[in-house]
Design a protein around this nucleic acid. Structure first.
Ligand SMILES: [Mn+2]
Ligand SMILES: [Mn+2]
Ligand SMILES: [Zn+2]
Ligand SMILES: [Zn+2]
Lengths: 165, 165
DNA sequence: ATGAAATTGAAATTCATTTTCAATTATACG
DNA sequence: CGTATAATTGAAAATGAATTTCAATTTCAT
């Protein structure tokens, strides 16, 4: 799926990878879970891309490294990565659930084309401020939010005006 | 599910109901569909509450008026109501999909408690402005957005500090 | 090394949503 | 009015993503 990235840059350095592992394994210890090769492979595969992956797409990538890893384990690990803040879910307007890693990544939001699924990432500190303000106002301990913008990208707009419904 | 409402008020007047019907039937005509009793009943039931209803909850309410209406028809009609702007989907953090009517209703957003599911509605014109700004900046024809805040409500915060994990 | 507890992955299950299809109903036209 | 045509309906079946089950395997504290 086409994706234009704003703060695009290189894959994580070995240092960065260690740091992320540290976060993951600390979380595992905290909840009394074990360190396994499968979890390692999935973490690495996940951090190596900045794409928004479906569980199935991640599964296929993981399989290239270790053909014995099961689909279920990818699901379960993705959940663990979410718990320690390394992964977050991005719901797409076509109903698919995608994940992206949040390690060493500036917090951002997505604008998605409802026609072709192309997505743009954008930064909006105002959104974080609104979260804080509204949380304070209604006495919630606001921990996260969900913000996406949907619409037609430039290409699809052109296409649909050329060939009108 | 507990819900604190901000612009709470009376059920729609007969006039308002006619107006909403007008919108619905105009839409039906536009897409070449027919006017049926089931669709009428579902529209009325839906407009009579301001709750955020799951499809199943709406189905149960509709059944009270006409026990012969099928589940499938409720699904299908909800989709039609969405198409003409009378209904909108509110995704809850527990994964349930809920619907609320948008007729004569000020645009608003939701903050939801991840523990008990209680929700607060709030207004934030800034969010609409962000949608417009970002759309312009990246040349999208931005048509809608999705914004929810998740966190712990005051009650749940007290409860969890009393009985710590 | 040993054993208790967690993990794994294939298969089964769940569950919301969508599709199928034969019978029924709406509505346009003569 | 009928009548023809196309849409609608609802029960049942199908789909598909996500979760659960469970026996075999692996981790890790001792
Ligand atoms: Mn992103
Ligand atoms: Mn609402
Ligand atoms: Zn597009
Ligand atoms: Zn709560």
């Amino acid at each position: 799926m086409l994706q234009r990235r704003i703060d695009d840059h290189a894959p994580p350095t070995r240092e960065a990878m260690r740091e992320a592992e540290e976060i993951f394994y600390t979380h595992l210890r905290r909840v009394g879970l074990k360190h396994t090769d499968q979890r390692d492979t999935i973490l690495h595969t996940f951090l190596e891309t900045r794409d928004h992956l479906s569980t199935d797409e991640l599964f296929r990538l993981v399989r290239k490294k270790d053909a014995k890893v099961g689909f279920t384990t990818v699901y379960r690990t993705l959940k663990l990565l979410g718990e320690c803040g390394l992964a977050s879910m991005v719901p797409f307007p076509d109903g698919t659930t995608r994940f992206e890693h949040q390690f060493n990544r500036r917090s951002h939001h997505h604008m998605v084309c409802t026609e072709c699924g192309a997505s743009v990432e954008f930064f909006s500190p105002e959104v974080t401020k609104i979260e804080e303000d509204i949380g304070r106002k209604y006495r919630f301990d606001a921990t996260r939010h969900n913000f996406q913008i949907y619409g037609l990208c430039e290409d699809c707009r052109k296409r649909s005006s050329r060939k009108p419904v």
